[in-house]
Simulated assay, not measured.
Amino acid sequence: MQSIIKAVALAALLATASTAAFAEASVRVGGAPMYASKNIIENAVNSKDHTTLVAAVKAAGLVDALSGPGPFTVFAPTNAAFAALPAGTVDTLLKPENKGMLTKILTAHVIAGKYSDADLIAKAKETADKGGFTLKTLSGDRLQFTMSGGVLYVVDESGTSSRITVSDVNQSNGVIHVVEKVLVPK
């Protein structure tokens, strides 16, 4: 009887652990499961849609910073977003002599603090009569958040408007929101 009780208890424990692991990895980005127990870098390196972003973060020397405690809110452009830039832009930015410019662009995608999609939408709706609201990025630039047709947009200082395509990808040190365009500071 004792062994049956232990077996049932073990089965229940394994089922709970499997359910928790499944729930944690239920968000997928670039075909890869994203785990809330991993940090931004640990998850981003697995997304096939963010290989350019990961290469840029490495070239800029930002791996340690984005692996740190945060919390951070990252607006992560996809490979397609980088490919939409003028020809040669990414190659130029990845050159060692352009590290400062690359760092500025990448940190213009990061806000200190953790802002969920619901947080951003609520504030954008609340300030809609003023054209939305702004948050300061780690680069010192500002991102504006506006609503249009029930959709949240992020607007950079250059006027580029980007839709968030995947939101609330929770990380151990913040949250990632996937965006369809590269946000460019002035």
Rank of each mutant, 00 (worst) to 15 (best):
M1N: 14
Q2E: 11
I4F: 10
K6Q: 14
K6F: 14
A7Y: 09
A7S: 14
A7F: 11
V8C: 07
V8E: 04
L10S: 12
A12C: 14
L13R: 08
A15F: 11
T16Q: 10
T16W: 11
S18A: 11
A20Q: 10
A21E: 11
S26V: 02
A32E: 04
A36W: 02
S37C: 04
E42A: 14
N43Y: 01
A44N: 02
N46E: 13
K48I: 06
D49V: 06
H50T: 03
L53C: 06
V54E: 02
A55S: 13
V57W: 00
A59S: 12
L62K: 03
A65V: 15
P71K: 03
T73E: 05
V74M: 12
F75I: 08
F75N: 02
A76Y: 01
N79K: 03
N79L: 07
A81I: 07
F82H: 06
F82I: 03
D91P: 04
T92A: 13
P96Q: 08
E97L: 01
K99S: 09
K99A: 09
L102H: 06
T103Q: 15
I105F: 00
I111F: 01
A112G: 09
G113A: 07
S116E: 06
D117L: 14
A118T: 13
A118C: 06
I121M: 10
I121C: 02
A122L: 11
K125S: 09
K125D: 10
E126F: 00
T127R: 13
K130D: 11
F133Q: 10
F133K: 12
T134K: 15
L135W: 02
K136G: 03
T137P: 00
L138E: 05
S139P: 00
D141F: 09
M147Y: 02
S148V: 04
V151W: 01
L152E: 03
Y153Q: 06
S158A: 13
S158Q: 14
I164A: 01
T165G: 13
D168R: 05
V169E: 04
Q171C: 07
N173R: 05
V175M: 11
H177R: 04
H177S: 04
V178L: 05
V179C: 08
K181L: 09
P185N: 10
P185L: 09
P185V: 09
K186V: 07
